[in-house]
């Protein structure tokens, strides 16, 4: 973080909260400063200089000045508003879910450029409207990776022995898969079974970290998607120590769509 009073940065708008007559507190995930909450004054007034630039999920270039308690948004210009995503209810729910994850895992004023980059990449993938469930899982997996919470899927997390190709026990307290002989010693009540299909997708994700996946990979993994989805959600709930609020609406619109 620079010591200047005003900083300019690229950012994604995560959420908004009305405050006072015409202001809003905007939570950004910025590339250079991490998570920032700043007041946008007059933004609720028609004809405000901000226009629609501070809409949730917009990728923006913004200028923010430091305040005593909260920072202030000076200027905001839209780089990408992900127009296709905004016209699809399920994609909106998915985008908001991603924003909530970043709001939960992103740290205040502590930059994590890798997190910013995967957030932006995922919003672009959602905007293309194809294979969205896969892109969300890929985002969740990398979110765990860049925030330092990625569990071990290849070897037993305790004895480091390699695991054979079968269903295995995952223990969130141990932070990975336990081999059959370690389960008895280190397994806790919070552990659960992960199928060989889900493990294969999770290991594929682990091997692909640092690789740019395309729609070919996204379309070739129908097996295990549902289980990996519930695996990642349960594990993230364990880390966040609470339910994510946006999952209820996401599940509702996905159900109504199917």
């Amino acid at each position: 973080m620079t010591s200047n009073r005003v900083y300019r940065t690229k950012a994604v708008v995560l959420k908004q909260m009305p405050i006072g007559e015409t202001n809003r507190i905007i939570t950004f995930y910025t590339r250079s400063v991490g998570k920032v909450a700043a007041v946008a004054r007059g933004v609720r007034r028609p004809g405000s200089k901000f226009g629609g630039s501070l809409e949730i999920l917009n990728h923006v270039q913004t200028s923010i000045s430091r305040g005593r308690s909260l920072d202030n948004v000076n200027e905001c210009v839209v780089i990408d508003s992900f127009k296709n995503l905004r016209e699809d209810l399920t994609a909106i729910a998915e985008g908001i879910y991603i924003a909530e994850l970043v709001d939960t895992f992103g740290e205040d004023k502590s930059p994590n450029t890798r997190l910013f980059d995967i957030l932006l990449e995922t919003l672009s993938n959602l905007d293309n409207l194809d294979h969205r469930e896969f892109w969300i899982l890929w985002f969740e997996f990398r979110l765990l990776h860049v925030s330092g919470f990625l569990p071990e899927f290849v070897n037993c997390v305790e004895c480091r022995n390699s695991l054979n190709r079968s269903d295995h026990i995952f223990d969130p307290v141990a932070g990975g898969i336990l081999c059959p002989s370690c389960v008895d010693i280190h397994g806790t009540e919070q552990s659960w079974i992960v199928s060989v299909y889900a493990l294969s997708l999770l290991r594929f994700f682990q091997r692909s970290l640092g690789v740019a996946l395309g729609s070919r990979e996204a379309s070739s993994y129908p097996d295990g998607l549902t289980e990996v989805k519930s695996f990642l959600r349960t594990y993230m709930r364990y880390i966040a120590e609470r339910d994510l609020k946006s999952t209820g609406f996401l599940d509702l619109v996905r159900f109504k769509e199917s």
Partner: peptide
Amino acid sequence: LPVGGDLEYADEAT
């Protein structure tokens, strides 16, 4: 566009 607003401040969506 809002009445009384400036075109240059309108975002791309609006």
